[in-house]
Amino acid sequence: MKLNFDSFIIALLCFIIIAYFFPQGYLWQDGQILEWITSVGVSLIFFFYGLKLSFQQLKTGLSNWKLHLLVQGATFVLFPLLVLPFYPLMQSELQHDFWLSFFFLAALPSTVSSSVVMVSIARGNIPAAIFNASISGLIGVVITPLWMQFFLSFEEVDVVGDVYWGLIKEIIIPVIAGLVLQPYFGKWASTYNRQLGIFDKSIILLIVYSSFAESFVSGVFESTGKLYLLWIFVGVVVVFLLLYGMIYLLSKYVFKFNREDQITALFCGSKKSLTHGSVFGKFLFAHSPSAGLYFLPLMIFHAFQILIVTVIAQRYHNKDAS
């Protein structure tokens, strides 16, 4: 079974369709069975992630602090600030949900594997890419809920007890455990990296199914239409191009990075993690009937960034080869 990026995007669409026609899996035992499976699965994802981290590669990439500052600043500050000014323009509840879904996307950490792969294809600074992609998810455990709590109503959710402790329990502790055991099982994790990748994506698919099944059962999508989806797609394209363009200008004319560091800044700073988004959303949007709406921009952004950045990475590669 080969579950690459293209087939994973197709699988996401299929699971949304399954959630629409067969939401019974989410409703079974009031969702407790599926919640338990995804919780254990998420912990294993980040445990394996810790096993695959290399201390030497992280140490090698640590010194380039200007590059790290730009990547993390673009990820957690610049992107949210692009979306934030539109908040006062949102009047209706549906418009607020539309804006909140984009702000959730903007507040998420960068993706890990695809960033490093794209930087490698384009012949950028790979150690720095590994460093930034690795620490971004850990920083996001603190920063993403911090951004979201200003605009989310946590009436039924304890931010410290449910959100932060849930993220620490399912992300930070498993990563630390993986790092501790990395000298013993790191080679095994590298050998079975493809199989572990399939496991990661399977858990994400279950989280997406659960969120959309809840939204379909609650009827939240009945208030939206084709125009809503069109605006989401347009919004995703606009914010990606704006962010990518700003990082390009900053890396080339302000920080004056060399070619390798420019590539790393562009590819790591402009991407968002569907894995972390699925996990964070599980806690931030607990019991929210609009959870499916909040995931839409993230999934479209995930597909769009892979398509566009793959083309750009290949052009960098061909230009360098020539």
Rank of each mutant, 00 (worst) to 15 (best):
F8M: 08
F8H: 11
I9N: 12
F21K: 08
Q29F: 10
W36K: 15
T38R: 10
S39W: 00
V42E: 05
L44F: 09
F48A: 04
K52N: 12
S54R: 12
Q56R: 13
L70P: 09
V71L: 07
G73T: 13
T75Y: 06
V77H: 07
F79I: 11
Y87G: 02
S92R: 10
E93A: 14
L94C: 05
H96F: 15
L100V: 11
V112S: 14
V116P: 07
A129M: 05
A129E: 01
N132H: 04
V142N: 00
I143D: 05
T144H: 00
L146Q: 01
F150Q: 13
L152Y: 03
V159L: 15
V160R: 11
I171E: 13
I173Y: 09
G178C: 10
A189C: 03
K201G: 02
L206G: 02
L206C: 12
V208S: 02
Y209T: 01
E214W: 04
S218M: 07
E222Y: 09
E222D: 13
T224P: 00
W231S: 00
V234T: 07
L241M: 11
L249Y: 09
L250V: 14
Y253R: 15
V254H: 01
V254N: 00
Q262V: 08
L274G: 03
H276L: 09
G277S: 01
F280S: 08
F283V: 06
F283L: 11
L284G: 00
H287S: 12
A291G: 10
P297N: 03
I300W: 10
I300R: 05
F304S: 09
V309G: 09
T310C: 12
D320L: 09
A321R: 09
